[in-house]
Design a protein around this nucleic acid. Structure first.
Lengths: 331, 331
DNA sequence: TTGAAAGCGCTAACAC
DNA sequence: GTGTTAGCGCTTTCAA
């Protein structure tokens, strides 16, 4: 910057004004400064500026998701990026892999780089440590799961309701023996979806059978093996509600293994790509991931703009799309 | 930091030593400083440090991909993140949407935040502007597509060879009327894959028919419509090579529309999820995306560590997996 | 083993 | 309109 000032025969402050498009600089000087910038290949250092600037903003946010490569996380990322881009903000992203320690490490790494805000899918069951970041002025937003040990803005799907609808859908097609198969029971979304399942079952005066509730699977293969076991037992269900995308894929494979794809009904939660191309096409309850990301980013930026109203808890509606697998009738 | 120094009754430099785990500080002082850090909720400011540090490194890299939410990009991102994490480096990521202007904007945005390196899937056909960043000490690595107007380390798939193998696979099953359907012809990977297709066709002494070459589709739907047109023409092919994942999905849908899934052979390039669950299962040539990302990140970090040997051009092998759709014989 | 002073690149505050 | 000076949070250099 000093070199640019020298070359254009002016001062640091004038260069700063030109770089930041402040007015009060003559057209001629602007021209000279811009020339010098091009000739020298000067790139402003935003971090250095943030150090001195009054608001201290780095125009940077951090995103902590389960796994940046899974479709849910990356769709979220993309939606957030879109809003951030419109404000000249760039996005750090990292995967937590359900590891609370990793959550803290990444938070620290982002904090050390002075992100203005953090959008977090909590992995651990204690986010109280984030109070320190909040005090330092970092805006916080929780998405997909609520935080523990701290309150803050939260954007969730209507998990319980979506699962309730899915289960009701199966009940309305005459099923009474409906299995639930899900992810780790400790994950908020899993617990909510199980609650929705139970609510629908109870409302239909069907007894909740514990052997119909399979939980703790984080890979498609685990779910496949477990469901195959239940389907070959003497007390096999006539319908299955799979509460997460990997689990749904496992369920589809289990039904194929046993040639039950067309005789046992299946409704899944979460999107799976090409659900319409499978045989039978898969009936799914899907989250509006783009809307979640967009609302989350907008709310975060509103906070950064000074909105200090009460914390908001936003719920984004899920949608059931009937495609075939969920409309199979009990034998 | 000043507050920490005051509270622990020592100086800035000692706090700096403790924060950076430098030795030459008495155990007792380390203890006192750490206590003060916890009590005050102090977070070191890495950017401020980078400003003064000799190497100027921010422990940050930038990733520019086509679309952060597509499976190829996000798998790349994840593989890079993994390597970065092991070095305490965090990753900025952004989508270019095939927009050269966006490429320049994001590059500038990352440069303004002083990333140590940039991993780029070039969108435009001129990367010469990156010479400025390189001069400023930013390491550059190109992935998936080579740069133009500048040379540098590059990690690519064996696109031409993979397409050659895919086409040969169809030829070896007796096909002579093989259509090619692909993405924008201007994208490097598309051009390479078309070249591989043509090479295999020519080697088999089959004339290359221009009406069998469909290009310029960037969505599944566009590809579907175009292929449906060709398949219903009087000169319909008996096999199709789809050179990209979205295009492959469009091709699958076109074949379904016409009930040709089991009579026209199909080999796709790129992974599509659940290829094994479709009917027929889809024969695909897949890229080793994880290996691409890993090699790319490792090479970038080697450069940051001072490796100044000649630029490397790495090719990662593709793999053909026969699953059914590619083994259908011509009628 | 510890600390004082200078300065990284930039903007704020204020003077001219 | 334009420039000067101080200082953001940190590391370097060098002295004690």
């Amino acid at each position: 910057m000093r070199e640019v000032a020298e070359r254009s025969g002016t001062s640091l402050k004038t260069v700063s004004r030109v770089v930041n498009a402040e007015d009060g600089v003559s057209l001629e000087l602007i021209e000279r400064v811009k020339e010098a910038i091009d000739e020298l290949g000067y790139r402003p250092n935003l971090s250095a500026g943030a150090l001195r600037r009054n608001d201290g903003k780095t125009q940077t946010i951090g995103l902590l998701v389960e796994n940046i490569s899974n479709p849910f996380s990356s769709a979220l990322h993309r939606a957030i990026e879109e809003v951030a881009r419109s404000r000249g903000v760039v996005v750090f992203a990292g995967s937590l892999d359900e590891d609370p320690q990793r959550e803290r490490e990444l938070t620290e790494a982002f904090a050390a780089r002075r992100v203005d805000g953090l959008i977090v899918v909590p992995a651990g069951n204690d986010q109280s440590y984030l109070a320190t970041e909040r005090e330092a002025g970092t805006a916080l937003l929780f998405i997909d799961r609520p935080p523990h040990g701290l309150i803050g803005d939260t954007v969730l799907s209507t998990n319980r309701d979506g699962a309730y609808q899915a289960t009701q859908h199966l009940i309305s097609h005459g099923h009474k023996r409906i299995a639930y198969i899900g992810d780790y029971a400790t994950i908020h979304t899993g617990a909510e979806r199980l609650a929705g399942y139970k609510k629908a079952i109870k409302e239909a005066n069907i007894p909740v059978k514990e052997n119909y509730i399979l939980q703790g699977f984080h890979t498609s293969e685990e779910a496949r093996v477990a469901l195959r076991g239940l389907l070959t037992s003497s007390d096999a269900p006539t319908a299955v509600f799979a509460s997460q995308n990997l689990v749904t894929l496992g369920a589809i494979r289990a039904l194929r293994d046993l040639e039950l794809s067309h005789s046992v009904a299946l409704v899944g939660f979460d999107d799976i790509s090409e659900a319409d191309l499978l045989d039978p096409p898969v009936t799914l309850v899907t989250q509006d991931v783009a809307a979640m990301g967009e609302r989350a980013a907008e709310l975060l930026f509103a906070r950064l703009d000074g909105d200090d109203s009460d914390y908001l808890h936003i719920e984004i509606e899920t949608t059931l799309t009937a495609r075939g697998s969920g409309e199979i009738l009990p034998r």
